[in-house]
């Protein structure tokens, strides 16, 4: 038994970069061991069996060994079932990966985050409703990392009223607004839908987007997301 050997671990590649002459440094999100960096030795050689496997957005099971910062990828097995993402789905996929890399801690086992990531990748490959997929993922990610504000009751322990408006901040219970303009804060109906993961209503998606963005930005520490800038650049292309 080699030190630190892990076998048959469900995983997604989040990012990889060249390392030394022929190897890759692969950042993976695993189900039971969280996010970690592995060296895939010789993975850039033309005949390497890993070449067609270590792709982002492809469900894998992997094995590795070693301790400390740099562990060595021992094997990767294709699990299949997800076509390669392309077009806007692919850009959205990069967004999931960037959020997971920026917000999750290394070596912090988080099966709920892995489940959310897996569900989101599969949904991007299947359905064109990217907005709903991204909102569901953002909320699941915040929840899995313990960053999500509680939405089951307001700050006075009253149930959320779908007809009321609430002032919400990233790390406290919603505060019910007793007066003010009809579009102040976030609607109770949106908070209830978010807690249930239901983004079918475009009004819910729209309101949730702003709220989720504020929550994410709060934890991203001011450094912009490259994928968000890419999406903005695409929408700003000359008509």
């Amino acid at each position: 038994m080699q030190p630190g050997k892990v076998d048959h671990q469900p995983a997604y590649v989040l990012h990889s970069q060249p390392w030394r002459e022929t190897s890759l440094l692969v950042e993976v999100l695993t189900r039971d061991h969280g996010r970690l960096t592995l060296v895939a030795r010789s993975a850039r050689r033309p005949q390497s069996a890993l070449r067609g496997l270590l792709l982002p957005f492809a469900p894998l099971t992997i094995a590795w060994f070693g301790k400390g910062e740099l562990r060595t990828l021992h094997a990767a097995d294709w699990q299949g079932g997800v076509p390669q993402l392309s077009g806007m789905a692919l850009i959205c996929g990069f967004y999931l990966n960037e959020l997971a890399m920026r917000l999750s801690a290394r070596d912090d086992a988080n099966p709920a985050l892995f489940a959310a990531h897996d569900a989101a990748v599969r949904a991007l490959a299947r359905e064109p409703a990217y907005g709903a997929v991204l909102r569901r993922y953002e909320w699941a990610l915040l929840t899995a990392l313990g960053f999500a504000p509680p939405l089951d009751a307001d700050d006075a322990q009253r149930p959320i009223d779908p007809a009321a408006r609430y002032h919400v901040v990233p790390d406290a219970s919603p505060h019910r607004l007793e007066s003010g303009p009809a579009d102040a804060g976030v609607g109770g109906a949106t908070l209830i839908a978010m807690a249930a993961g239901d983004y079918a209503d475009p009004a819910v998606r729209h309101e949730a987007r702003g709220f989720l963005r504020a929550c994410l930005d709060h934890h991203l520490g001011g450094r912009p997301l490259a994928t968000r800038e890419l999406l903005q650049a695409i929408s700003a292309l000359p008509e």
């Binding site: 993402l85 392309s86 990069f94």
Partner: peptide, 16 residues
């Protein structure tokens, strides 16, 4: 290329 990055580039070229 048919890497994730090559595909993203293809998408932007297509949009352009």
């Amino acid at each position: 290329n048919f890497t994730a990055e090559g595909e993203a580039t293809a998408h932007v070229v297509t949009e352009l």
